[in-house]
């Protein structure tokens, strides 16, 4: 898939994946890389940026195995931002689908 395209979609994915509870970075990276191919390392710069923009808050939590994990919590601003992105995504895919269907109609 086109790399710019992937990056835009990646943002929606990490936001949505944290709606059902806080997640840690590795978890998010793995969940996304299972669905589509990408350099897993790109997830962390994105998480950093979204945190800086106030869409995530972070905290460290001890784990039974290994060093403390960094958890990401979706803030109210994060929820608003996610809803906006999803609305944009839906209207965008709808438009593309219409064009594709029209174009392929016999």
């Amino acid at each position: 898939m086109n790399i710019q395209f992937k990056k835009g979609v990646l943002e929606i994915c990490v936001l949505v994946l944290t709606t059902r509870g806080d997640r840690y970075g590795y978890e998010l990276a793995v969940m996304i890389s299972e669905k589509f191919e990408l350099a897993v390392g790109s997830v962390y710069p994105l998480l950093n940026r979204l945190t800086q923009e106030g869409y995530f808050s972070t905290y460290l939590k001890e784990s039974t195995e290994g060093p403390p994990r960094k958890y990401y919590h979706l803030t109210p601003e994060g929820w608003g931002h996610m809803r906006m992105l999803i609305a944009e995504w839906n209207s965008f895919t709808k438009a593309v689908n219409e064009i594709v269907e029209d174009g392929l109609r016999p």
């Binding site: 970075g25 390392g41 060093p67």
Partner: peptide, 12 residues
């Protein structure tokens, strides 16, 4: 920043 990658290696 580096901590994120350190953690990634640990968890992997």
């Amino acid at each position: 920043w580096l901590y994120d990658y350190y953690l990634h290696f640990e968890q992997a």
